[in-house]
Simulated assay, not measured.
Amino acid sequence: MENRKVRLRPFVVRMPSGDRYWTVLDEDGLVPIAEVDEFLRHVRFGRDQAESMTATYAGAIRLFLVWCARSGLDWRECAGRLGSFMFWLRHARLDGDPVVPGPGQQPVRGPRRVNTVLAGVREFLKHQVTVGNAPVAVLAMLYEVADDRDLPVEVRGEASGPRYYARARHRSAVPNAPVDRASDDEVVALLLACRTARDRLIVLLMARAGLRRGEAVGLRREDIHFVVDARHLGCSVPGSHLHVVRRDNGSGAWAKSRRSRAVPVDFLVVQAFDQYAVERARCTEAAFSDMVLVNLARPPAGAPVKPGAVNELLVRLSRRAGLERVVHPHSLRHAFATNVVEAGAAIDEVQQLLGHRSVTSTQVYLHPSPQRLRAAVDRVGSLVEGARS
């Protein structure tokens, strides 16, 4: 394999309408690579996916094309060599250094990152087969036929016989580690570290309603139904709740799923929202925004909070609270899901609350924590107590 440097780079394109998507520029850094650009425009506008999705795909395809170029192969010929690509992903950097992993050397990319890149490459190659830029034989190199007998019982459905589906041939094994959830103590510490009602509401929307960061900052005032009976609003969902709706908010905030969902909220979220409403009313510029979460102190005042600002907020709160680690947005969402499962919710209920398209994404929360396993054993009681009874 050649180790010459290949200068491809992701690039964000702003359309006249204001919509944006990411593409990949050629080695001169001036022109988008035609096949890649067409695919990413299709993802953004044909599939109505978020800008962030095109950014993820652009980064993945860039790595694939760099590897193809260093291998001296056309990308159409590389679908059958994704095993070698996976090895390169784990150990190679983009500075031209040779791939010579030694004993004890840490991989450059972990298994989750490798699988994310592979998913983007598969989508790119599938699209090229669809539009006729790659032979149909590429699909057989990407997928193999499998059945659902190795899937959890909750995922198989009610069909008596096995169901067949196309399974990706190349996938890096991910360690079966516990879900990275924020503990209840960490959530309380973050809330105590908040200095504004808006910041408390942001934390609670993720930790007590399970929203993704993009869903939280993408809420509009019309999505908030914090009333006992919302029928006068044209909504039949009982109790206080909010609606997660997929729309382009212009700030990079997107709901991941196309399917809208209603999420019930508890009194903590309602109370935090009421306190924030008083705080927001003091900002004159906020009155002109339909977004729920807006800038109140930072300029431009009244502008929607961006997804990246949520990460920055949690970094500040984690340090201010004296936590041993930085709590990330998804850790708060995981905390909500785990608490709901441990409270006895069924898997379909958790799936609906989280907005998962497939129940397999929800399956991870069914793995019991060490505390639940300890409690299960303690509930059995001792043999002596059983004999006495």
Rank of each mutant, 00 (worst) to 15 (best):
K5Q: 06
R9S: 09
R9H: 04
P10A: 01
V12H: 04
L25C: 15
D26R: 11
E27G: 12
G29V: 09
G29N: 03
E35F: 10
E38A: 11
F39M: 02
V43S: 00
R44G: 01
G46T: 14
E51K: 07
A55R: 15
T56M: 07
L63V: 14
A69Q: 13
S71C: 12
S71V: 08
W75I: 13
E77R: 15
R90D: 02
H91V: 13
A92T: 12
R93L: 05
G96R: 02
P98N: 02
V100H: 08
L118A: 01
A119T: 14
V121R: 00
V121M: 01
F124T: 08
K126G: 02
H127Y: 15
V131Q: 00
V136C: 06
A140Y: 09
L142I: 15
V145L: 12
V145F: 04
A146L: 07
E154Q: 10
E154P: 03
A159T: 11
G161A: 14
R163Y: 04
Y164S: 04
Y164P: 05
A166V: 13
P178T: 02
A182W: 11
V187Q: 01
T196Y: 04
L201M: 10
L205N: 10
L205D: 01
G210V: 10
R212V: 14
R212M: 10
R213K: 15
A216N: 08
V227M: 09
C235G: 01
P238A: 00
S240G: 10
H243P: 01
V245D: 01
R246W: 15
W254R: 03
S257C: 09
R261V: 11
P264Y: 05
P264I: 12
D266Y: 11
F267T: 12
A272T: 08
A277C: 11
A281G: 05
E285A: 15
V292K: 00
V294H: 03
N295C: 09
V305E: 00
L313H: 08
R320P: 06
H328W: 14
S331K: 12
R333P: 08
N339V: 11
V340T: 09
V341Q: 00
V350C: 02
Q351L: 10
Q351Y: 10
L353K: 02
G355W: 07
S358A: 06
H367E: 07
R374C: 10
A376L: 11
A376I: 12
V380W: 08
V380Y: 09
E385Y: 07
R388W: 11
